[in-house]
């Protein structure tokens, strides 16, 4: 089956986007003969320069320049180089793509994304309600909207607690002075409110999964990070044999009728309880571990997107590991020139 698939998230840096791992999954598929179009925001995204990954890259504007400008560029590319399917891989794009889904469909471009409702309700600030609605344990949390609220913490929690920003940043605090300190730092950067979350002791475990939008789990592979970079990203991880994680995932996908890729971040306590701490509405950068363990999630997502029936994966190899490494790729300034001046480059 021949398809032209456009992929974003080519920033294969030390805080990698999922683009290249997704492309690797598609390239390894025996059913899909793909022409891969890379969509790059910056002229130094490593994926653009990697051999055998992308057939042609186009620069696109950031979603922050507005849906209009963004879609105009996609349409312009589509006219030159017709696209069958786009797989957006970055959080900041999802909103734009979900909103643009009908327009893309009209153009003949398919996507396979969660619905806006699914996207909204799993937001960090809504986690409490999400847990209640879907019967999932989540850490207790309260929001602080002023410095004076810090006194409220002791009515709800024992220290330590996690102090989190609206979008990013999380710190542990062992007393109210430390909370005050983090409160000031985070609120200066991300504004209010600040989220105070129960600190759950345990091991962080993750699942990469794919839902078909009908309630079926097409793929699910649990993993534990073995080593984390100073940016908090997995440097190495290993697949786990954990039926409870699979059960939680199946249950969540069945109840939410989740459509598309997702990553669940959970804490497993020493009493074997699982607390959901975050739900990412897209494929994570470590998805290639799942491919290697026997569940080609990018391939399955492509098939679902074009309306093919996909049999759910039920097995994966336990104890499969990934280790990230860095590699100095050499290039010539001509490639950089080509991309910077014309906004596109053929590999």
């Amino acid at each position: 089956m021949k398809l032209t698939i456009a992929v974003t998230g080519l920033n294969n840096t030390d805080n990698p986007g999922p683009g290249i791992p997704v492309i690797r999954g598609i390239r390894e598929s025996e059913h899909i003969e793909a022409r891969i179009i890379g969509l790059a925001y910056e002229n130094l995204e490593p994926g653009v320069y990697m051999p055998n990954m992308i057939d042609k890259t186009y620069m696109i504007p950031y979603p922050s320049s507005g849906t209009e400008a963004y879609l105009e560029r996609i349409e312009e590319i589509h006219q030159k180089d017709p696209i069958d399917l786009i797989i957006p891989n970055l959080d900041a794009e999802l909103y734009t793509f979900m909103k643009a889904e009908p327009r893309l469909r009209e153009l003949g471009i398919k996507t396979f994304l969660p619905t806006q409702e699914q996207f909204e309700e799993r937001h960090k600030a809504n986690l409490d309600a999400f847990g209640k609605k879907y019967d999932i344990k989540v850490p207790k949390s309260i929001t602080l909207t002023s410095h004076g609220d810090i006194q409220k913490i002791k009515d709800h929690f024992d220290y330590p607690v996690l102090v989190k920003g609206k979008f990013y940043d999380a710190y542990i605090a062992y007393n109210s002075d430390q909370v005050a300190n983090h409160f000031n730092k985070i609120s200066a950067k991300w504004g209010l409110p600040i989220i105070i979350q129960e600190f759950i002791k345990g091991t962080e475990v993750n699942v990469v999964a794919l839902g078909d939008g009908q309630g079926n789990t097409i793929a699910a592979v649990p993993m534990r990070k073995l080593f984390i970079t100073d940016k908090g990203k997995a440097w190495s991880g290993i697949t786990l044999n954990d039926e409870e994680m699979i059960r939680i995932t199946n249950d969540l996908i069945e109840r939410t009728k989740w459509r598309g890729g997702m990553e669940l971040e959970m804490i497993k306590t020493n009493k074997n309880e699982y607390y959901m701490i975050e739900i990412n509405p897209r494929i994570p950068a470590w998805v290639y571990l799942a491919v290697g363990a026997g569940q080609n999630i990018p391939e399955a997502l492509v098939k679902l997107a074009i309306g093919e029936k996909v049999e759910p994966y039920t097995n994966y190899q336990i104890g499969k590991m990934f280790i990230r490494y860095s590699w100095d790729l050499l290039g010539d300034i001509q490639e950089f020139e080509q991309l910077s001046i014309f906004g596109e480059i053929e590999k």
Binding site: E42, N43, L44, M59, I60, P61, A69, E72, R73, G343
Partner: peptide, 15 residues
């Protein structure tokens, strides 16, 4: 100036 890393005129100009 072409900033390494930051996109230049593509897509932006039409805005």
């Amino acid at each position: 100036h072409i900033n390494a890393g930051v996109p230049d005129k593509f897509g932006m100009g039409t805005a």
